[in-house]
Write a protein that binds this DNA or RNA. Structure first.
Ligand SMILES: Nc1ccn([C@H]2C[C@H](O)[C@@H](COP(=O)(O)OP(=O)(O)OP(=O)(O)O)O2)c(=O)n1
Ligand SMILES: [Mg+2]
Length: 691
DNA sequence: GCGGATCAC
DNA sequence: TATGGTGATCCGC
């Protein structure tokens, strides 16, 4: 049993070449393998060229070390699994427990929202193309030293984001490079977002070139305007496609840039779909449970946002390659305290469909870092820190934030990363001096170092544009500034008020309590003092409000079959119907191909004229009280038991958090991601999909 | 609160 | 010869 996985894990050297580059290293060095369309060469050949070009470098050595440690951690993970199984853990019980989770997830599945993920094609590259038409149709990359992105012509050679130029040129000798012009990307980003916002004023921007839109309201309004009543699923399907095509065309018309899109009932699926027909195209997933399950069953877990190279390898070692495997292996995942519930949600394609605009005060940090040729001379390093501190200060002031925590980041010549941070008890980081003073101190006490990167970052921010103090607590969320209403790029540095009070608390480690000064300056009026001081003492100024939204759910509909009901329907009736639907046995449908009423009519139909998306507030909860569960909405409650379970079975010996034991220095540290979890505490890499 | 680590863009 | 910058989150202490 374990022999099979053992071959799957680690390197299982199948490399036939004389050199000994393991499979895992080949894959590690090759970023995203776009295996999609016409690559000029075989992906495995490309991977070999990449690794070959890097071999021997410090970078490569560092990667190899990390790879080796990961292999060890994975082996420990498998050992732990085998040990628990040998000790007689009841897998079937775990499986039943997972089935309960699945039932709950299913009961909350919501197909009622039309979610779209829009993603600009080769964004930086296409912006450069607008400025320089001679780039049309040729292979080129954007950046210096490392590519931020590449034209699709270049991608055909295996050239990708994050790849160093010298490697890219090995893959594509005629590759042309153009330097990045970040300001222009910001400007175009602004224009693009403006277009998206026409279709969903609440659009959620994700980075400079992508966004989530909830088109449900737009669609509803359009239908009302048309006088169109309830539509067949087929008609809805076409309407969605048409509207998204319009969005993309408008974007192209207004900005000259092409965009791809994914249309699905929730964010994760929409995001995955936007990639399917890239570039300059779209993909829509039918809004039926069966279509979603068919889609996810064979979907590689690596496509799940949040599952990166490391998680992919860990899961692969457990035999989990596709989302369908998540279901199949659910008991083992549960046993190992992997974040089963989040994995199951992803595997079932039942994730968050809440789209809300980001807010300025949501920002958590502002930083600045610089890579340079190896340096170890004290004065040189000091000069760099001073330089970085100055730039960071300028950025902070322009953006109008201050922060309580400052961290210094440095990378040694052999690519090992480190950070040191300091949190002020009273004051705030705001001036160049307060920042630089601590940064230099931190650097000096680490000093004998040969470095290639230095950076500074301020955390625990306070938004100076937002009313400080307790009022935040009572102010209506809608009053908070949307992230787009200004901020970065475009826009000349609008001078800041006279907030320049300088509160160099930290200078002598004295931590003066000039917070008062700062606050006063910010709030301008002394009337605020009482509130302000109280707030700062309770850390409220930095608090962000809680949304506590459950999944979007404007109408009452069966979460399994989508059938809608009048809002007058009682919970009892609804639950009765849900039980019927669930009784079909979710698991079975997952593993069996079982065709289904595709976009057919059978579903949806009976709308009983329950229109009104407007009555949104109607039913906020999608799960109308399931079986016997506690009140908690918290997934982790289900994962708690694991620890006790694991050990209860084995009693003492279980060695609570054994395996890891830290082998010298930072070594074992793999603990990070799920697996290594010496203990329970499953990791939750899916913030993105979380409610 | 700190430091390491993973992930995304 | 040679491997970026910004920001977020999670985990174990
Ligand atoms: N490691 C990375 C990845 C991306 N970017 C920047 C450049 C990209 O143009 C932009 C958007 O990232 P995407 O992942 O969306 O990639 P592209 O838009 O370039 O290509 P596409 O979306 O068509 O795959 O972010 C970056 O600086 N560094
Ligand atoms: Mg893009």
């Amino acid at each position: 049993m374990s022999s099979k996985e053992q071959s799957a894990m680690a390197s299982a050297g199948s490399s036939s070449s004389s050199t000994e580059i393991s499979d895992s290293m080949l894959r590690r060095m090759a970023g995203q393998s776009v295996n999609k369309a016409g690559l000029k060469k075989d992906q495995s050949e490309i991977n070999k060229i990449i690794a070959e070009a890097s071999k021997g470098s410090k970078f490569y050595e560092n990667e190899r070390e990390k790879d080796e440690k990961l292999g060890i951690q994975i082996m420990k993970l498998l050992d732990k699994r085998d040990r628990l199984l040998k000790e007689g853990v009841d897998l079937r019980r775990l499986e039943r427990e997972c089935d309960t989770f699945i039932q709950r997830i299913e009961s909350q599945r919501d197909l009622s929202q039309t979610i779209v993920h829009v993603d600009m094609d080769a964004f930086y590259a296409n912006v450069e193309l607008l400025a320089d038409p001679t780039l049309e149709g040729i292979a080129f990359g954007v950046g210096t030293g490392v590519l931020t992105t590449a034209s699709y012509e270049a991608r055909a050679y295996g050239v990708r984001s994050g790849m160093p130029v010298f490697v890219a040129k090995k893959l594509c000798p005629h590759l042309r490079m153009v330097p990045a012009t970040f300001n222009s990307y910001g400007e175009y980003s602004g224009k693009v977002m403006e277009v998206f916002r026409r279709f969903d004023p609440n659009m959620a921007k994700v980075g400079m070139d992508e966004a989530f839109l909830n088109l449900t309201t737009y669609i509803q309004e359009e239908r009302e305007k048309d006088g169109t009543g309830q539509e067949s699923e087929n008609a809805m399907h076409k309407r969605r496609e048409r509207i998204v095509r319009t969005i993309r065309e408008t974007c192209k018309k207004v900005t000259g840039l092409t965009v791809s899109a994914g249309i699905a009932p929730n964010k994760m699926l929409a995001k995955i779909c936007s990639d399917i027909n890239k570039p300059n195209n779209q993909y829509i997933l039918p809004f039926t449970r069966q279509a979603v399950l068919d889609f996810t069953r064979t979907l590689p877990i690596r496509k799940i946002p949040g599952i990166g190279r490391v998680s992919e390898r860990c899961l692969e070692a457990l035999g989990v390659i596709t989302c369908g495997d998540i279901i199949t292996k659910r008991a083992e995942l549960h046993l190992l305290n992997y974040g089963v519930i989040e994995l199951l949600k992803a595997g079932l394609g039942a994730t968050s469909n809440v789209v809300e605009a980001g807010r300025r005060e949501d920002r958590k940090s502002v930083g600045c870092e610089r890579t340079f040729r190896e340096k170890s001379k004290r004065e040189e390093l000091i000069a760099i820190v001073e330089d970085v501190a100055e730039e960071l200060t300028e950025t902070l002031q322009k953006l109008e934030y201050t922060g309580k925590t400052l961290s210094l980041k440095y990378k040694t010549h052999d690519f090992k990363l480190h950070t040191k941070s300091h949190t002020l008890q009273h004051g705030e980081y705001k001036t160049r001096d307060s920042i630089q003073t601590w940064a230099l101190k931190a650097l000096e006490e680490s000093l004998p170092l040969k470095l290639r990167l230095l950076g500074l970052r301020v955390n625990q921010l306070r938004d100076l544009r937002k009313k400080g103090g307790l009022e935040q607590y009572f102010t209506n969320p809608s009053h908070s500034r949307k992230l787009h209403e200004d901020d970065e790029e475009a826009e000349g540095a609008d001078f800041n008020n006279a907030i320049i009070l300088d509160s160099d608390e930290d200078l002598e480690d004295s931590e003066a309590a000039e917070t008062e000064q700062v606050e006063r300056a910010i709030n301008g009026s002394p009337f605020n003092d009482a509130i302000t001081n109280a707030a700062s003492s309770t850390a409220v100024p930095f608090a962000s409000k809680q949304e506590t939204e459950t999944t979007h759910h404007p109408m009452i509909s069966c979460p399994i079959c989508s059938r809608t009901f009048p809002s007058s329907t009682t919970n009892q009736d609804l639950n009765a119907h849900i039980d019927v639907c669930l009784s079909k046995d979710t698991i079975q449908q997952l593993s069996s191909r079982r065709s289904s009423p595709i976009l057919g009519s059978s579903e949806s139909v009976s709308s009983t004229g329950e229109k009104s998306v407007g009555s949104k507030s109607a039913n906020k909860r999608s799960r109308r009280d399931i079986p016997t569960n506690k009140e908690d909405e918290e997934d982790y409650d289900f994962l708690r038991p694991p620890t006790s379970r694991n050990h209860s079975t084995t009693s003492s010996s279980a060695s609570v958090s054994p395996t890891v034991t830290s082998s010298g220095g930072s070594s074992n540290k793999k603990s990070k991601n799920v697996l290594m979890g010496t203990k329970e505490a499953p990791r939750n890499p899916f913030a993105f999909m979380k409610r």
